[in-house]
């Protein structure tokens, strides 16, 4: 690692204002930033620590049927939050398998979302739940559906001086959800495929469906054709097969050391069906 200057502004907006050049990077929990600096792929002249900004950006609140999660809340704060457990139990379930305890103690929700590594576990889950992300810049800000944040591998629509400020997640309510993390090497490996499914269903009859996959594609990807195959259908093996076929043909699956693209497409068929069954069985 090479030396840099560390600054600690007291407001998030001020922090955004300091991100003027490519030589300056924000630092929240720092797990991903430290990894990239150690590898030499990131060599900032200045790091802007977000640790001293307003406390409200670390808070988790529930109101109006929504969870409001400050970008600087740690993943373990999310994991332990009774509000999260009540409003969106699938988030707490997902967190138990995300990275490890030490990473969760330090890494923040904002960093996790903004890093845009497609192997991250929360983006598919939050996108499937319909999360929106609020972004701050030196002058103002904007809010957009989380899915629209991602444009490619490690690439987002975030401008140089924009920071994730908050993520808003509609409570699950009557919706049921599951996230399947599929690893092909050790159990603690990055996923070869992540499948998040959120259903509104009466028994086996699916009224609405959201399907988002990760890890096997460059960005977390919503699978519209698979959702259509499920929506309005009474789920049986034939429906699951149709949804699986739709998913496998619409997703731009890429091969890597976790498995070939052909294999991951098969995995997608199987895991989608299993995730849907897991959701319906839970009812």
């Amino acid at each position: 690692m090479t030396p840099f200057e560390l600054v600690e502004p007291h407001t998030l907006r001020e922090a955004a204002g300091l991100l003027a050049s490519a030589e300056v990077r924000p630092l929240a929990g720092g797990t991903a930033v430290m990894l990239m600096m150690k590898m030499g792929v990131l060599r900032p002249a200045r790091l802007v620590s977000l640790r001293a900004v307003e406390k409200r950006y670390s808070e988790i609140a529930a109101a109006g049927g929504e969870l409001r999660i400050g970008a600087l809340a740690t993943l373990s704060a999310l994991e332990r939050s009774p509000l999260v457990a009540r409003a969106a139990p699938v988030i707490a379930q997902t967190l138990r398998m995300l990275a490890n305890v030490r990473v969760r103690n330090v890494a923040t929700v904002g960093g996790h979302l903004a890093h845009a590594d497609p192997h991250m576990d929360l983006p598919p889950v939050l996108i499937a739940l319909g999360a929106r992300v609020s972004i701050i810049d030196p002058a103002g800000g904007r809010t957009l559906p989380l899915g629209e944040l991602y444009t490619g591998y490690l690439e987002t629509t975030l401008g140089r001086n924009e920071l994730v400020a908050e993520v808003t997640v509609p409570a699950q309510g009557s919706r049921r959800a599951a996230y399947l993390k599929c690893t092909t090497r050790s159990a603690d490996d990055w996923p070869a495929l992540g499948v998040a499914v959120v259903l509104e269903a009466d028994g086996a009859l699916v009224r609405d469906a959201r399907v988002v996959i990760s890890a096997a594609t460059d960005t977390p990807t919503r699978l519209a054709a698979a959702e259509n195959a499920l929506r309005g259908a009474r789920v049986d093996e034939a429906v699951l097969r149709r949804a699986g076929d739709a998913a496998a043909s619409e997703a731009a699956v890429i091969g890597d050391q976790h498995g070939s693209a052909a294999y991951k497409r098969e995995l997608l068929r199987v895991c989608l069906a299993r995730a849907v069954r897991a959701v319906l069985d839970e009812q």
């Binding site: 560390l6 720092g30 430290m34 990894l35 150690k38 490890n100 030490r102 330090v106």
Partner: peptide, 27 residues
């Protein structure tokens, strides 16, 4: 491992376990 994966560098900061190899000393 240098990547927060093996736990050999575990340190407690304000009561929470962290990977010392990924934690800036200044913090």
């Amino acid at each position: 491992c240098g990547q927060g994966l093996c736990g050999c560098c575990t340190v407690l900061v304000d009561g929470a376990a962290v990977s010392g190899c990924l934690y800036l000393a200044l913090l």
